[in-house]
Design a protein around this nucleic acid. Structure first.
Lengths: 250, 250
DNA sequence: CGCTAGCTTGATCTCACTCAATAGCAGTGG
DNA sequence: CCACTGCTATTGAGTGAGATCAAGCTAGCG
């Protein structure tokens, strides 16, 4: 089911009916290769993209040729749902890995809304989650040092993957180069390398060739001043994401 | 009219009927003194706040006691409309100056939506504008140096005030201390002071005691790499905001 | 095998921070 | 009226986190 990861384990979830309805709004699935730009900034768009498999990015192209990531997306994210209301985007959307996406035409969303106005709320919620993550990225850049930033990003990614079952709370795949991580945290690849070594030496986590192993989630969370509140996860999931309740009972 | 500045001069606007309907959803107006915290992070909320007069902030309280602004709001902004869908906020909302706000209960918004589903779109749009500004704040912190950041913020504020008629394109009131500007741009008050001197000496703009005078908008815009696209302004307004068309004809 | 992309490590540099001192100005109270 | 307090702005000197530059290393791949 293409929408199986959408709004999973969040405070606002989709009912089975809503999920089915949304599924029916999918026009087609599509594949993109790693590195491809899927939506170019400023282009008028009439469809939105639900990420089914792989990872995608949203990034601003700076005039000096450098780019900067403003969001990283995991399966279940409605990557450019905001285009439904905005009609064009203020940034690019790209494939970080080879990806599978579901294409949802805006006219289909309109029909859906007309048929069931209640569907609007969870979709709106989804775009607001994005905004909440943006705010946390601002905080990360403004208030944390290099090691905290990287740690915070790893905690966030772990939490989001946890919610869709793509992390067990300690291990997850992260198909990003150190340069990519640098574009998220506004650091050079050189410095990311040093930071990752330090994190390894401190016994907090190991990041190697597209795979992350968090060895001490509790400490990593504290060091990064990470609080998953802004992800609006269900309480049990939020506790696991913060390393408070790693082995949930019941 | 309390909602007169809401979505003014944007690509998505409110119809007269919608504006009137929204006006009817206002339960009361309220005043807050400068410095007051209006909404505390995490508190369940059942109303949203439309800023009528003055300026407000949204900021994250860091554990070390420092705070960091993630948004500055001007009249016409629906400051915490996102609480309508999120139900609680991941940040604080505060009054930067003495402010007048209109309080809109969420139940009134629900009634409004039920009566006229079309109202949803512009409201959603408004929250997406916020997200677009967040993205630009990320870009600003990540890619610009101190002087560019301050200049970019001044350009943005000028553009937003222009849209509601609170700037003539060159002069506007900015009731922020240099420390406040520092919290926006992630700089110390000391460095903001130096940057403002430099901007003055370069003949780009003068910031003094709560008043900004932009003396060379075109150059300031270029220096800051500011592009108002992300504000989704109507074309004529966007040109003025970028200093391309300062004296509109016709 | 050689090529390229990614990672690592070292040396040096720089932008903005920190610390510190001074001045201006508003409000408050004697 | 002046003294005192607190907030804001300004300027200088020294410091440091992360950037930049440069060189070598590793691994996957045609």
């Amino acid at each position: 089911m293409l929408t199986r990861h959408l709004l999973r384990n969040r405070l606002t979830e989709l009912s089975d009916d809503e999920r089915a309805a949304l599924e029916g709004a999918v026009a087609q699935t599509r594949q993109y290769a790693a590195g491809q730009v899927v939506v170019r900034q400023g282009t008028p768009i009439e469809v939105s993209t639900l990420l089914v498999e792989g990872m995608m990015t949203r990034h601003v192209d700076a005039p000096d040729g450098r780019r900067h990531l403003v969001a990283v997306h995991v399966p279940g994210d409605f990557v450019d749902l905001h285009a439904y209301a905005l009609k064009k985007l203020d940034h690019d959307v790209g494939a970080l890995t080879d990806v599978t996406v579901a294409v949802v035409p805006h006219v289909a969303l309109e029909r859906l809304q007309a048929a069931d106005p209640g569907i609007t709320r969870p979709l709106w919620f989804q775009t607001l989650l994005d905004a909440a993550m943006h705010r946390q990225w601002i905080y990360r850049l403004a208030s944390l040092n290099a090691m905290q930033r990287v740690a915070h990003f790893l905690c966030e990614t772990n939490a989001r993957l946890l919610a869709i079952g793509a992390s067990d709370g300690e291990h997850f795949a992260l198909p990003m180069t150190q340069g990519d991580i640098g574009e998220v945290c506004s650091l050079t690849n050189v410095h990311v390398s040093r930071v990752l070594r330090e994190l390894r030496e401190r016994g907090l986590c190991q990041v190697r060739s597209s795979h992350v192993h968090i060895t001490d989630l509790r400490s990593l969370t504290q060091m990064a001043l990470f609080d998953p509140e802004y992800l609006y996860l269900q309480p049990a999931m939020a506790r696991r994401a913060a390393g408070i309740d790693e082995a949930p009972h019941g």
